[in-house]
Amino acid sequence: MSCANIQVSETPLVLYALRRADDALILGHRLSEWCGHAPMLEEDMALSNIALDLIGQARELYTFAAKVEGRDNDEDKLAYLRDVRQYRNLLLVEQPNGDFAQTLVRQFFYSAFADLYWRAMMNSRDATLAAIAAKSEKESAYHLRHASEWIIRLGDGTEESHARTQGAIDHLWAFTGEMFAVDDGERALIHAGIAVDPASLRGRWLATLSDVTREATLAPPQNEWMQQGGRSGRHSEHLGHLLSELQSMQRTFPGLTW
């Protein structure tokens, strides 16, 4: 492996897999930052566990993307040798952990979507994606349950936890629109029965949000403006710092086996 950026032929299917792989890796990486620093040992365990699931999903999706691409890329080249502009993850998942409320709201927004998404993807005409979906769906269901329970506890906990959680919802809401956006390449995959139309999941996603936030005594967010760009590599400033840490070994010691 050299330490220079690799080039990826982003055919619609490769790009589709990369986007989901990047989501899973970046969110998994963020959650792993909590390991050893969580508010209670049970959450060190839970957040690490969720991170492990996500990193596992990322590995399968990268391997799939590399196979579809058919060059000599692999999971590690895709993860470690693409720069910020080549990463395709949602802006939501790269947002810093912030406090525990921010981490859990980010997780809740994502998992409420991922749960529906992977369940629907189990019917993908692509056998590998359907198999990845079958495994990921079970994991996402647990991630969503964990996040929902915390949103309720924090929202309906103390005045401070309520305020922090409401603040996190208001702050992160603008990054949720991207989950439902589709470009032409994806549109073709949707028509071919390989991908799922995220717009078809939005109603149920909103219903989950509304059920949980109501029980948590939290208010729906007011601002309707949505930030976009992650899917085409226009990221927030946070991602570069994350990648410089994530990739430091491969960039410092190019081409070695670890």
Partner: peptide, 26 residues
């Protein structure tokens, strides 16, 4: 070193290991 592990396989193994330590503590 979790955030800097050199490969995805090593990253997952290290994270799982540190999580085990937490489990031992509990």
């Amino acid at each position: 070193w979790i955030t800097r592990a050199p490969t995805l396989r090593r990253k997952a193994a290290l994270l799982a290991k540190v999580q085990d330590e937490c489990g031992h503590g509990l």
